[in-house]
Nucleic acid binder design. Structure first.
Lengths: 64, 64
DNA sequence: AAAATATGTCAAGTATACTTGACATAAGAT
DNA sequence: ATCTTATGTCAAGTATACTTGACATATTTT
């Protein structure tokens, strides 16, 4: 799984901290997801889609 | 978060076991998700959308 | 240049997703 | 009525998502 969170975030011009606060997660969580340390939970993934107003597919690319 | 996995599965007329095998997870995992014991990982959620050929929103309803 | 803000990363802990194995009950087939 | 398949559930373990706290470095602001 990879994602384009970092670019989406930069388009909105918000910091990792801003995003973390908006979604009620830690900054490290955002950082780890952006840098591919792990994938978000479904809940957090959905929060991200709502925040950026995009679909799951527009953020995450799943590959077998 | 709630979902309509059980009804989607019955439409396709497959057992929890069939579905579990198709997605390479345990039957208990499918059962637990259907009965709201926990939510799937993003990876499993995406596998489910592909299996049923629907979007995330068509399976999962997120409510704050 | 100095101060402030943003990012990367580590370590150790908690929470939750998922596993295997087992057993009980329900429903469907012979 | 017996056999088989499907579902629900429990317990204990492993894997991964996420937390807090801390510190280093990079980037931006004054």
């Amino acid at each position: 799984m990879n994602n384009n969170l970092k670019s989406l975030r930069k388009i909105k011009n918000v910091s990792q901290n801003d995003l973390a606060n908006a979604l009620s997660v830690s900054r490290q969580t955002i950082n780890s997801i952006e840098n591919g340390k792990f994938d978000p939970s479904l809940t957090l993934a959905i929060k991200l889609t709502k925040y950026f107003n995009v679909s799951i597919d527009e953020i995450f690319k799943y590959e077998d």
